[in-house]
């Protein structure tokens, strides 16, 4: 039940786009058609589900203060937390590269759907942001971290597919010239964000 609660919360209440603005750049750049945005959303979800638990383990057994005590008691006072950023981003870049190779070898059809988006994802702020939030919230086990990653990914997928659907319809509407394209996308995202705030405070 706790997992379910965490999942719902990370999809709707703490939505990566509407509450934290993470991954905005690709969200605005790739949301022109529903099909490509669904592909990117799936790729982001996929990478989040893998990277967040891995970074959780790295954080727990290497980075947090006193984490090295499992090697020998002499290391109990070591604090490596200043290495967080560089290690997390290296792990993410490596995992994205490995995933790309695995997908290419075993499921070429999935590769042709996700392939072009995978290299983009290493520098998507939603991925690094999710790992950093995971570190800040101090989850108690690796399962929670995985559920958090999955929920955030699904929330991101939901947001990008929704804006892509709206933008497809927008093509036929009359928008002031200066507002076309980026301007109106910003304002629509803002309105969607206000709508999503209705989920705030939900507890299961």
């Amino acid at each position: 039940m706790e997992y379910f609660n965490l999942f719902i919360k990370s999809v709707f209440v703490d939505n990566m786009i509407f509450a934290y603005f993470l991954g905005m750049c690709s969200y605005l750049a790739v949301s022109k058609t529903v099909k490509t945005s669904a592909g990117l959303g799936l790729a982001v979800t996929f990478v989040l589900v893998v990277t967040v638990p891995v970074n959780y383990l790295i954080n727990k057994y290497l980075l947090s203060p006193g984490a090295l005590a499992w090697i020998s008691p002499r290391f109990a006072t070591v604090d490596l937390s200043f290495l967080t950023y560089i290690l997390f981003i290296a792990i993410i870049a490596a995992i994205v590269q490995i995933l790309e190779m695995i997908i290419e070898t075993f499921t070429p059809s999935l590769y042709s759907a996700l392939g072009i988006f995978l290299p983009l994802i290493a520098v998507n702020c939603a991925i690094l942001g999710c790992s950093l939030f995971m570190q800040e919230r101090a989850f108690s086990n690796v399962g929670e971290a995985a559920v958090f990653g999955l929920g955030s990914g699904i929330g991101w997928l939901l947001a990008i597919v929704a804006i892509a659907a709206i933008r497809e319809k927008l093509r036929y509407s009359k928008i002031p010239k200066a507002l076309q394209g980026v301007g109106i996308s910003f304002i629509i995202t803002g309105l969607m964000g206000i709508a999503f705030m209705a989920f705030m405070g939900i507890k299961l």
Partner: peptide, 29 residues
């Protein structure tokens, strides 16, 4: 609240592009 930041940026873009028409996008979205 967070969503209002988006709307403020949207309005800044609107003003900027009204003053510089060469920046406007054509209707391709």
């Amino acid at each position: 609240l967070p969503p209002m930041a988006l709307i403020v940026v949207g309005i800044i873009i609107w003003i900027q592009r009204t003053r510089n028409p060469e920046m406007q996008e054509n209707n391709q979205n």
